[in-house]
Design a protein around this nucleic acid. Structure first.
Length: 820
RNA sequence: GCGGAAGUGGCGGAAUUGGUAGACGCGCUGGACUUAGGAUCCAGUGGAGCAAUCCGUGGGGGUUCGAGUCCCCCCUUUCGCACCA
């Protein structure tokens, strides 16, 4: 892709060819020598923290999707720098986790060898992309200097009572004899061996994120985030307002007991014809009659073994009767108590009232087991006896029927009235439930930070003292999980045998490692303090630089990473360690790149390796193309054939600078277009509308060169700064060639003059009955009557109007519509 | 099933509050320069029609002087979550 056209043709307008490879190498070297990308964190006057989600350093190397994401952030950061901010744009590596570990297992290389190799490769690729990253603050989550503080973070939660242990199910592959992550379970089968996956109960560490659910939800109203991301978080947190209602029952031993159910539809209680408990509900044993015992036991065994995924994908209802009954507090009738796996122990109270008339799942269950179905709500078209062929779930304009004293109540009023009545009897109370579960951070794996806990026979659970951190992850050859069901570290006595910090007797270290999401839940706090070994984050520098001014990343992290980061920030805020409780002031989700209509995947062989494109077209052209191929927040379609357009644009810009004249004076209409372009970019870049920003620059360069005219210096120079965020190397080169001093990024974004941008004549569209019939060139300030006169002067317009106009709609500066 | 996003030329995509549909780019057609062109430059390029003109933003209704944009119904694609009571 050399510009051989201009090679040795003296008549060619461009005498010197644009050689991106040479220019890019030159400026990357200069940037490094001069520290152009360094941010003085201490002295900065107008701090602007432009954060991008850091990559997982895969063995395949940098993905074009990574580069798309980073370039978008880089443009934003560089623009903010030109706007006078001190921009800090750090980048690092999220290098722990199952992803790396699985890959290491697959290729038979130890992660401790593999990861540094991958990081080196990423580093090379990222540097070639021309990002404005201050590499002095690079971090890797696998660095003991980093995960020391990840462990410290765990201890903070532990000390605040926000970390606790409980039994929880994990996916277990009986063939591979190992714990599987959810991503490794596909359709209920082990991804590798295709064996049905089972559940196993293990003691695991949890964080009480559910305590923070109300706050995590409420704060969403006050942060400037992509709406799509906020919606995803709201759904994930899943607030439901409803009531807990007690149903009386009798245990086998004759003792009374209350079963609490959660419902969002207390208005339908008269239609509750049965009750269902989760199979693992603690009351099941004491409620099961001897006759049903065998069947119940078998059912419980079966659902226990069944893996989580298969259980969730099947909609066919199963269940067994316990033999016991409960009293519906509204109807005072006995209703049978069943158990079924469609009721989840983790949500609500683990028990429901079955209202088959108004819940489709209950309806399916009642149909299958021939339980009575009663209508208690009807809409405008139904009455109390309208038969139900499916559950009637509609609430709006719903009226209660078959509901005793509540007949005729509207649904919403009935909800309130029924809960009120029952609560007087002490058998109901309004409650809010969240679907957000506590965060399980234990991993029975090797490639993560060991959880800093020691178990002592005498002292119990003892946190590792802060001075003993980090608990270093040892190098072990046999890092593969095995049939013991515990972490590989549990096979290494030299690791887990340790003196109890309290009493000194022999204790045993926790051998699980922590979740990868814990590593990346706080990395943005660390960047400005990289290099500080005495604190996780320095209070002074943190106060200055955080919360993050702008965060850009993929929406696949909308619920996990972004929610956990918010949670951790709140915890640290509550502990008095941070002044703010929301980590990211502004967040924007970028889109994803597909290739020629298809998702990029290794199996399809359509993965784009940025290296060859950067080599062929130059990083600047590649960056510009990536930003041009579609709206940044939506992603787009990567097509090889289209890169040439971006490159041609840069070629023309380069050529314009080589051939521009400083003798003549700039053309007024070109200068008008220039100011319109400045305005367009100043508006487009902050809202990440990069594709239209590039289009505007292309349009401008076409105007500058229209009909082979010689560009004037004043027409071209501002474009160098405008293009700088997109094509930083080329901009620096042209800046230098045209006599600029220092870096173009230490200059100022061109200012836009509204007077210069204003057109002196506009094309006014003339419509007759809403259809375009003509155009007149008039002053932008023309009055309605003058515009009408001008319009009627057009014979075509006059012809369509015929007689006189009935009505005229005039939109100043835009159009005139004559209704005839 | 629930939730999100999206359907516009041959293709990627523009159209910020309802106001010229198709900016910009790719591709394509013709031309210039050239030993050559897969370089560069110029002109053209939604469809139909000689033309006047008509038709055109997934489909069907509606509101409006005017709808890609707003409202109702439907279809398709795609990404999350999936028995959350």
């Amino acid at each position: 892709m050399d510009n051989s056209a201009t090679r040795d043709d003296p008549l060619s307008p461009a005498v010197i060819a644009y050689n991106p490879q040479a220019i890019e190498q030159k400026w990357q070297r200069i940037w490094q020598q001069r520290g152009t990308n360094h941010t003085d964190l201490q002295r900065a006057q107008r701090p602007f923290y432009a954060l991008m989600m850091f990559p997982y350093p895969s063995a395949e190397g940098l993905h074009v999707g990574n580069l798309f994401a980073f370039t978008g952030n880089d443009i934003y950061g560089r623009f903010q720098r030109l706007m006078g901010h001190n921009v800090f744009e750090p980048l690092g590596y999220d290098a722990f986790g199952i992803h790396s570990e699985n890959y290491a297992l697959k290729v038979g290389v130890h992660p401790m060898d593999l990861i540094p190799r991958n990081i080196a490769n990423f580093q090379r690729q990222l540097e070639s992309a021309g990002l404005m990253v201050d590499w002095r603050y690079r971090l890797a989550t696998t660095d003991p200097n980093y995960y020391k503080w990840t462990q410290w973070l765990f201890l903070q939660l532990f000390n605040q009572g926000l970390a606790y242990r409980k039994q929880a199910a994990v996916n277990w592959c009986p063939d591979c004899k190992t714990v599987l992550a959810n991503e490794q379970v596909v359709g209920g089968l082990c991804e590798r061996s295709q064996t049905p996956v089972e559940q196993r109960l293990l003691e695991q560490w949890f964080f009480r994120i559910s305590d923070y659910a109300p706050r995590l939800l409420e704060n969403l109203d006050h942060i400037d985030w992509s709406e799509t991301t906020k919606t995803a978080q709201r759904n994930w947190i899943g607030r439901s307002e409803g009531a807990e209602i007690e149903f009386e029952s009798r245990k086998l031993d004759g003792g009374a007991c209350e079963i609490r159910v959660f419902t969002t539809r207390p208005d339908t209680i008269y239609g509750a014809t049965y009750m269902v408990l989760a199979p693992e509900h603690p009351l099941v044993q004491s409620l099961t009659k001897p006759k049903q015992k065998k069947e119940v036991e078998q059912y419980r065994e079966r659902t226990k073994k069944q893996d989580l995924v298969a259980r969730k994908t099947s909609t066919e209802k199963t269940g067994v009767f316990t033999g016991s009954y409960a009293i519906n507090p509204a109807t005072e009738k006995e209703i049978p108590i069943w158990i079924s796996d469609y009721v989840l122990m983790e949500y609500g109270t683990g028990a429901i009232m079955g209202v088959p008339g108004h819940d489709q799942r209950d309806f399916d269950f009642a149909r299958k087991f021939e339980l009575p179905i009663v209508r208690v709500v009807c809409g405008e078209r139904e009455n109390a006896n309208t038969p139900l062929s499916e559950a009637f779930e509609q609430c709006e304009a719903g009226t209660l029927v078959n509901s005793g004293v509540f007949d005729g109540y509207e649904v919403e009023a009935a909800k309130k009235a029924i809960v009120e009545l029952l609560s007087k009897a002490g058998s109901a109370k309004p409650v809010v439930h969240f679907r957000l579960h506590d965060w399980c951070i234990s991993r029975q794996r090797y490639w993560g930070p060991p959880i800093p806990i020691i178990y002592c026979d005498d002292c119990g659970v003892v946190p590792v003292p802060e001075k003993d951190l980090p608990v270093v992850l040892p190098f072990i050859e046999d890092f593969k999980p095995d049939d013991s069901g515990v972490s590989p570290l549990a096979r290494h006595e030299e690791f887990y045998r340790v003196a109890c910090p309290k009493c000194g007797k022999t204790g045993r270290r926790e051998t699980d490692v922590s979740d990868n999401f814990l590593d990346n839940s706080w990395y943005f706090l660390r960047y400005p303090s990289v290099g500080r070994d005495d604190v996780p984050f320095d209070p002074v520098v943190t106060k200055k630089w955080l919360p993050v001014t702008s965060y850009i990343g993929g929406n696949e992290h909308a619920v996990l990473h972004l929610l956990y980061s918010r949670f951790i920030t709140m915890v640290l805020h509550d502990a008095g360690r941070l002044e703010f409780e929301e980590p990211f002031t502004r967040f924007r989700a970028h889109g994803h790149i597909i290739r020629e209509g298809a998702k990029m995947s290794k199996t399809q062989g359509n993965i784009v390796n940025p290296d060859e494109y950067i080599e062929n077209w130059g990083a600047d052209a590649f960056r510009t193309y990536l930003m041009f191929l579609g709206p940044y927040e939506q992603g787009g379609d990567f097509r090889d054939a289209s890169i040439s357009g971006a490159r041609r644009f840069l070629d023309r810009l380069f050529a314009s600078v080589q051939t521009m004249s400083s003798e003549g004076s700039p053309d007024q209409s070109v200068m008008r277009k220039l100011h319109q372009t400045i305005r367009k970019l100043s508006e487009d870049i902050p809202r990440l509308s990069y594709n239209t920003a590039v289009a505007a620059m292309m349009e401008y360069i076409n105007v500058v060169r229209k009909g082979e005219r010689t560009p004037q210096r004043d027409e071209v120079l501002p474009l160098i700064t405008l293009v700088a965020p997109f094509a930083p190397h080329l901009a620096e080169e042209l800046w230098e060639q045209t006599g600029g001093t220092g870096s173009v990024f230490d200059s100022a974004w061109p200012s836009f003059d509204p007077n210069l941008a204003k057109e002196d004549t506009i094309e006014l569209v003339v419509q007759v009955n809403g259809k375009v019939r003509g155009r007149v060139h008039v002053s932008p300030d023309i009055t309605e009557s003058a515009a009408l006169a001008a319009a009627l002067g057009d014979p075509v317009v006059a012809k369509f109007v015929g007689g006189t106009a009935k009505k005229v709609i005039f939109v100043p500066g835009r159009l005139l519509n004559i209704v005839a």
